[in-house]
């Protein structure tokens, strides 16, 4: 058990370190410095700016300094917004992104799993067909298409929900729907095929042969086992909800981290790009760690295998 937790924790730290390093060197591989776009800068000012942001230090020193900063949870100053730190940019966008992201994750689990179960239990009958048709559409149509079509129909045409912003609670509907649509479909399909496979297992036959009631057989023996693969993809789901928010926040003009990220890309605000990437990665690593721990609870074989290593 502890071996498994330690192993996962180590993997998480190694990955995070790899991400910080990769991100730092990628951003410093950009031709020219961060201030090259402002061509009007005089050499003295350029030098002063370089000195101010320690850009004249050798690369390894900059890297070590940056690493020290990240470890003390300081992602440095923004290059474009004078006087604003990357931490502040993130703090500003975090509530919006967290709220929509958490709601989307909730929708994915609370809708995707039951839909998959309903489909599997009604295999080849109309509920199954209906769920599979919707899920196939959901997997094939890109989120930004869903978002813009929904925006046009529900906000511009019907006027049921505001076109942008989250001041009204109804403003959450479309962004959350667009963000989670793909993953609801994906999870529904996964839960369906996983449950169908579980239903074929010998131990399901044993459970029936023991005379257990249908509900017990299904929920205690079937569902729990079929949810294991669903839980394993929740990590990537979170990652994709985060990156999906770039486009969704753009379309619905939500002041979240994703929008700040896209803005800092267009502004070539390298420290912000770097900081937000690392922040995303850290959130994701923590989520993956949580999922791993959940996995441990659901599947006792994991603990056994890790300890045997």
């Amino acid at each position: 058990m502890t071996a498994y937790v330690v192993q996962r924790l180590l993997l998480m730290l190694v990955t995070l370190f790899a991400i910080i390093t990769l991100t730092f060197f990628l951003m410093h591989a950009v031709p020219g410095g961060p201030f090259t776009s402002e061509k009007m800068l005089q050499p003295e000012i350029q030098a002063a700016l370089n000195a101010k942001y320690h850009l004249d230090d050798p690369l390894w020193l900059q890297y070590l300094n940056y690493l020290r900063g990240v470890l003390s949870l300081d992602l440095g100053p923004s290059f474009k917004y004078a006087g604003m730190s990357v931490n502040e940019i993130i703090a500003e966008g975090l509530p919006v992104t967290m709220k929509t992201g958490a709601l989307a994750l909730l929708c994915v689990v609370a809708l995707g799993v039951p839909l998959g179960i309903v489909a599997a239990l009604n295999r080849n009958r109309w509920p199954d067909t209906l769920v599979m048709v919707i899920a196939t559409i959901g997997v094939a149509v890109p989120s930004y298409v869903i978002a813009t079509v929904a925006l046009y129909v529900f906000a511009l045409r019907l006027g049921w929900v505001p076109t942008f912003g989250l001041d009204d609670w109804r403003g959450y509907f479309l962004p959350v729907f667009a963000l989670s649509g793909f993953w609801i479909s994906f999870i529904a399909r996964l839960a369906r095929s996983s449950l169908l496979e579980t239903l074929q297992q010998d131990y399901m036959m044993t459970a029936k042969a023991k005379g257990l009631k249908r509900g017990t057989v299904l929920f205690k023996h079937g569902l729990r086992n079929s949810l294991i693969p669903v839980v394993t993809v929740l990590g990537p789901v979170v990652a994709n909800l985060l990156t999906g928010s770039f486009v969704i926040e753009q379309i619905f003009a939500l002041p979240g981290i994703g929008r700040h990220f896209v803005l800092s890309i267009t502004n070539r605000d390298y420290t912000a790009i770097m900081g937000i990437t690392i922040f995303y990665a850290a959130v994701l690593m923590v989520m993956i760690f949580i999922v791993d721990m959940l996995y441990l609870v659901l599947d006792p074989r994991i603990k056994y295998r890790a300890d045997a290593k």
């Binding site: 297992q201 010998d202 131990y203 036959m205 044993t206 459970a207 029936k208 042969a209 023991k210 005379g211 257990l212 009631k213 249908r214 205690k220 023996h221 729990r224 086992n225 294991i228 659901l298 599947d299 006792p300 074989r301």
Partner: peptide, 28 residues
């Protein structure tokens, strides 16, 4: 019917299967 049968199964009539490696639920 299914309810009456499930009362009997595991009670008056029980069954063991071929492959003990897959016949037990791995997560209980």
């Amino acid at each position: 019917d299914e309810d009456e049968l499930s009362e009997l199964r595991g009670n008056d009539i029980s069954m063991i299967f071929q492959d003990p490696m897959t016949s037990l639920n791995p997560t209980l």
